[in-house]
Amino acid sequence: MAPTDIFTITADPGTDIWRKPPTTDVFNAPTALTPAGPHPQRTSGPLNAFLSARLSLNFTPQETYDQGGLLLSLRRKSDSDNNAPPSKWIKTGIELYNGAPRVSTVGCDRWADWSVADLPPSSSSASGGETGWTTVVVEKDKDGNGTGLWVYRVAEGSGEKVPLREICWVFGEDPEAWEVEVHAMAARPEKGVQGGLTVEFAGLEVKWAS
């Protein structure tokens, strides 16, 4: 069953969030928040107070690297230009790669790195070329080795959190000096193609320490 709290983002061709040496640094993909309701939720705050973020998405990818998902933008509290791209960021969601939609996670400290995982058949074979509704979660985690973020895909039906990636650098550089903002994002990196990419989102939920 499709969720009811759906909102959309449409990304034009040539939009992306990606940073690769020696010179590529692109941050022009559109972002959005869930529509304001009677109880608007907090979607930005101190990094050390962040606990988790959750988002569901669905779209019909056509071009290589078509993508949508959850974006965490990290900025120093001392940064004076909030319109500039964030110093660090994390995105996770679905991306079309090698001819199939896959779960994609990118973490960018100084430069970006990227990992992909296959979608289960029930999602990747959705009718009409859609990816099927997929839910991702980014969650703060502390163990005997330290503190980091874990990225999960939530299994349809069982609700099991399927681990995708641990990101360890996030809290390594004075977390009290940083803020994080949570958004939904969409991008169509391919240039010279016709039309934009529209991604449906629902269920954006962000949790903070009190």
Score class of each variant (00 low, 15 high):
6 I>W: 01
8 T>D: 01
9 I>P: 02
10 T>W: 08
10 T>L: 08
11 A>Y: 01
13 P>M: 07
18 W>T: 05
21 P>H: 13
30 P>W: 03
34 T>N: 09
36 A>I: 09
39 H>W: 09
40 P>G: 02
41 Q>G: 08
47 L>N: 11
48 N>S: 14
49 A>N: 15
52 S>Y: 01
55 L>Q: 00
58 N>C: 11
59 F>M: 12
60 T>R: 14
61 P>K: 07
61 P>C: 10
65 Y>I: 05
66 D>G: 05
69 G>I: 08
72 L>Y: 01
72 L>A: 11
75 R>Q: 08
77 K>A: 04
80 S>R: 13
83 N>L: 13
91 K>L: 04
93 G>Y: 00
105 T>Y: 02
106 V>T: 12
116 V>K: 07
121 P>Y: 05
121 P>C: 03
123 S>G: 02
127 S>F: 07
131 T>R: 01
133 W>M: 08
135 T>L: 06
135 T>H: 01
135 T>G: 04
136 V>N: 03
137 V>I: 15
138 V>F: 01
141 D>T: 14
142 K>F: 03
145 N>K: 13
146 G>T: 03
150 W>C: 10
152 Y>I: 00
153 R>E: 00
153 R>I: 00
153 R>L: 07
157 G>V: 07
157 G>F: 03
158 S>C: 07
161 K>P: 04
164 L>I: 10
164 L>S: 00
169 W>V: 06
169 W>L: 05
172 G>V: 07
177 A>L: 12
177 A>E: 15
177 A>W: 07
178 W>N: 06
179 E>F: 04
186 A>F: 00
186 A>Q: 00
193 V>Y: 03
197 L>K: 03
200 E>G: 09
202 A>P: 01
206 V>M: 08
